[in-house]
């Protein structure tokens, strides 16, 4: 399969990818989720006080290259990842999907999210924010080159850790 031209990608293609990803993450099918990423993918959660920052000069909450993404998944697949053992139950709502830029074989898409997280019989809270993704058209279809989850809250506060994939 050859890569589709980036101009041919429609919003529903992006939505289909986002919804598939949300389903995999809520089901903790993390190895399958890795399959949606490019081999140079990055996963970013900026700090609440610098939501538009660059991880090279700003301390993030999460700024993983593909090696640490894979390490994170390996960890989360282990019963020794105590913060997620037993695992959180999550339910993601992804909406307001827009394609905002196209260049070369990539596009930038944004969406809003709410991730409800429950653990130890207690509702921990709602992680509310926006996604900004860089998606690449490849021979295997649309793949995630960068996913940035920007939280709206001014500090993590009572949400505590981001120990699952946001």
């Amino acid at each position: 399969m050859t890569a589709a031209p980036i101009d041919a990608v429609r919003r529903e293609d992006v939505e289909a990818l986002f919804f598939e990803e949300a389903a995999l993450l809520d089901a903790w099918r993390l190895d399958d989720w890795l399959g949606l990423l490019t081999d140079d993918a990055r996963y970013l959660v900026p700090p609440n006080d610098v939501p538009d920052g660059d991880p090279r000069d700003t301390l993030f909450t999460i700024a993983d290259d593909i090696r640490r993404i894979r390490g994170r998944v390996k960890r989360l697949n282990s019963a020794e990842a105590h913060a997620e053992s037993p695992r959180s139950r999550t339910r993601r709502m992804v909406s307001n999907v827009r394609i905002v830029e196209r260049a070369g074989d990539e596009l930038v898409a944004e969406a809003n999210f709410i991730v409800y997280r429950f653990r130890r019989d207690e509702r921990i809270g709602e992680y509310v924010g926006r996604y900004r993704y860089r998606l690449r058209s490849t021979g295997e279809g649309l793949r995630i080159a960068e996913r940035r989850a920007v939280l709206d809250c001014e500090e993590l506060g009572g949400l505590g850790s981001v120990s699952f994939i946001l």
Binding site: P47, D49, L59, G157, L159, S161
Partner: peptide, 8 residues
């Protein structure tokens, strides 16, 4: 450095 981690 810029960026604060604040959590409970």
């Amino acid at each position: 450095v810029s960026g604060t981690q604040e959590y409970d």
